[in-house]
Amino acid sequence: MTNGSTPLIHLEAVTKVFVTDEVETHALAGIHMDIAKGEYVSIAGPSGCGKSTLLAILGLLDTPSDGTYILNGKAVSGLKMHERARIRNREIGFIFQAFNLIGDLTVYENVELPLTYRGTPGSERKKLVHEALEKVGMSHRVKHYPSQLSGGQQQRVAVARALVGSPSVLLADEPTGNLDSANGDAVMDLMRELHRNGATIVMVTHDPRYARFADRGIHLFDGRIVDEKVEAV
């Protein structure tokens, strides 16, 4: 399942149970998973299978009900809120289906945001933001607001924002879900390019075409990994 080196992400018997009134919903039921550094993993499965819950746990947006999560050699499942925020800021880059750019901020300011929280000095922030925007081909739109951009352009900016802090892993949740096929293809090409340059990517997708871009595909059903295969790239 891994390339043999120490995994960047190690999940062991991770479960997630949601309790509402008297109903218990087992969103994840004993997930074991390792993801190596530089790996491109896609997660697929029907609606309600636990893909997004798994991604939320991987992104430290949620905590597992049980089990162990080790990120970059550090157990992170029991961390406090502010420690999780710090790791999220430094180790993880998010790419959302709905882009989730902040409407009141310019392209530059949106991309700059993770560095601001990290306390990176202004001059260095400027350099990193421009580099990230260069990578996604959006450096000519720094002063635009998200509403002035197309969906594809917004997602490129979102990718730049995910990249700018050089995180250990990019987590992408249906990154092409809100895009037409041309823009979707362009974003996927961008992801593949990032992966070629060494980025670790975990991507949730419904689309089998894009799932094939990954090194490894994981199939979830009812909160369990039911299939796992290495793609021939």
Binding site: L61, R88, P114
Partner: peptide, 16 residues
């Protein structure tokens, strides 16, 4: 609240 969610996902602490 949506924006706050994004900011927190990007690493904003409670104090931020």
């Amino acid at each position: 609240s949506h924006e706050m969610g994004i900011r927190m996902a990007l690493g904003a602490r409670a104090a931020d």
